[in-house]
């Protein structure tokens, strides 16, 4: 079971992306996408942005479960207060685990934002952030 995670900013610009595999049930945490599948991941995730924009006005919650389906893959979304979208591409349902993962990443994103030198919509290039996201993925996914 593999995951593709992306953070998209207010201008639909990508801020951060990562891939992981599941660490549960003997998985080794490495993403296993087929080669041609990998290049499609980014497209799938970004095309679901349209749907997110429609749905976001219908519901006041931050975690929107599954907003889009493509073949056998699902896209889940978490929308922050400042309209930053966390998108996760996955092939199996795991609502609660994904919600906890999103909450952790939200915590990390808010801390990144507290940096006075970091402006909204900037790329996140911190190695520490990357490490912590992967840690959260290992914990929940």
């Amino acid at each position: 079971m593999s995951f593709y995670f992306a953070i998209v900013g207010t201008k639909d610009n990508p801020i951060y992306e990562a891939e992981f595999g599941t660490s549960k049930q003997g998985g080794d945490g490495v993403a296993r996408f087929r080669e041609e599948q990998r290049s499609m991941n980014q497209f799938i995730v970004h095309s679901s942005l349209d749907i997110v924009e429609e749905v976001q006005w219908a519901t006041p919650t931050m975690y929107m479960k599954c907003v889009d389906k493509f073949n056998n893959l699902q896209v889940s979304c978490f929308l922050t207060a400042g309209n930053i979208k966390f998108l996760l591409l996955h092939d199996q349902k795991a609502d609660d685990a994904i919600r906890q993962f999103f909450t952790d990443v939200y915590d990390l994103y808010t801390k990144t934002l507290m940096n006075p030198f970091y402006e909204v919509d900037m790329r996140i290039t911190s190695g520490v952030f990357d490490g912590k996201v992967k840690q959260a993925a290992k914990k929940y996914l």
Binding site: Q56, M62, T80, A81
Partner: peptide, 27 residues
């Protein structure tokens, strides 16, 4: 402006699980 951007995320994070995004003007 830059303070407000950060304050918004921080306040909603502090509300925890029950945090709701506002979709209406009055809200």
């Amino acid at each position: 402006y830059s303070i407000g951007q950060r304050l918004l995320e921080l306040l909603l994070w502090r509300e925890g699980r029950s945090a709701k995004r506002e979709t209406r003007i009055l809200g």
